[in-house]
């Protein structure tokens, strides 16, 4: 049966990108413990609107853990305390009556705050644009079964491809490094036969774009802990290996595969 929680929220409020922000305390009373974290914010917002206070802006969309829109720091952890769970899938029964919850937006120099808890994550799109694809113009593809993909390779690629691009890895990283996000896409494409021709240019290109925006990895492993899809740290090692290979091979000059 549903019970109700009374909580104290400390929410980061910031009216705009250039305006100063601060924590504002709100009481969240009578929150059904069946509700999700975002529904808890919905209820708080309804109450704020009633009191003529502008509602808290927070990122969200699909609310089923796949679109990657949502994500805030909850008590100092990206997506909150539950492992492998995006903010939208975190439910209030994981909290106790009387808890104080601190809610802060993702932080990184490349993620400027737009308003309240919403940040601009467009550098992640730029990393993908710089090489996170296999170039196959529509209509050029041959029969799908002409290229065999070992089941294990497909599964491993899928493990990496499960990334939802929420940015929790970057937000959780003490260095604001983009390694886990970038390496997941690299492994997805570089581990498949279809991805081989562009493999080394892809890794150089994506790494260089990543380094234009994000910090340097020091292998803390916070990213993988924060990841709602449990993307593995191994992919970062694979990326590092591929990056060195790409530099050494210099395919543009030597045409090695």
């Amino acid at each position: 049966m549903s019970t109700e929680l009374n909580l104290t929220l400390q929410v980061w409020r910031q009216p705009g990108p250039d305006a100063p922000g601060s924590f504002v305390t709100y009481e969240a009373k009578g929150i059904p413990d069946d509700s999700s974290f975002l529904e808890m914010l919905d209820i708080v917002n309804e109450n704020l609107i009633e009191r003529d206070v502008e509602p808290i802006e927070f990122p969200h969309d699909c609310r089923e853990g796949i679109c990657g829109t949502c994500g805030v720091m909850i008590n100092g952890r990206a997506h909150g305390q539950e492992k492998a769970t995006a903010t939208c899938q975190l439910h209030m029964r994981k909290f106790n009556d009387g808890d104080t919850i601190v809610i802060e937006p993702w932080r990184a120099a490349a993620f400027p705050v737009i308003k309240d808890l919403i940040v601009d994550r467009s550098p992640m799109d730029k990393i993908i644009a710089s090489g996170g694809y296999i170039y196959a113009p529509t209509g050029t593809a041959g029969e799908a079964n002409e290229t065999l993909v070992p089941k294990e390779a497909a599964e491993s690629a899928m493990d990496a491809a499960a990334c939802i691009g929420c940015g929790a890895c970057i937000a959780a990283c003490p260095n604001s490094a983009g390694q886990l996000f970038t390496s997941a896409k690299l492994w997805h494409l570089n581990s498949l036969p279809q991805g081989q021709p562009e493999r080394f240019q892809r890794v150089e290109s994506m790494v260089h774009t990543m380094e234009q925006f994000f910090g340097a990895c020091t292998n803390h492993g916070e990213c993988a802990e924060a990841c709602p899809k449990e993307i593995s740290l191994d992919f970062i090692a694979y990326m590092n290996a591929d990056y060195m290979k790409s530099k050494i091979k210099n395919r543009a000059k030597s045409a090695q595969i």
Binding site: A136, T138, E143, A144, L148, V149, A154, H188, G195
Partner: peptide, 22 residues
Amino acid sequence: NNIIDQMTAQGVPFAREYGGLM
């Protein structure tokens, strides 16, 4: 059918049989 071919060429990791076929 063209859709499957197109998406496979782009690296969509469709489920595979042990023999490597779709």
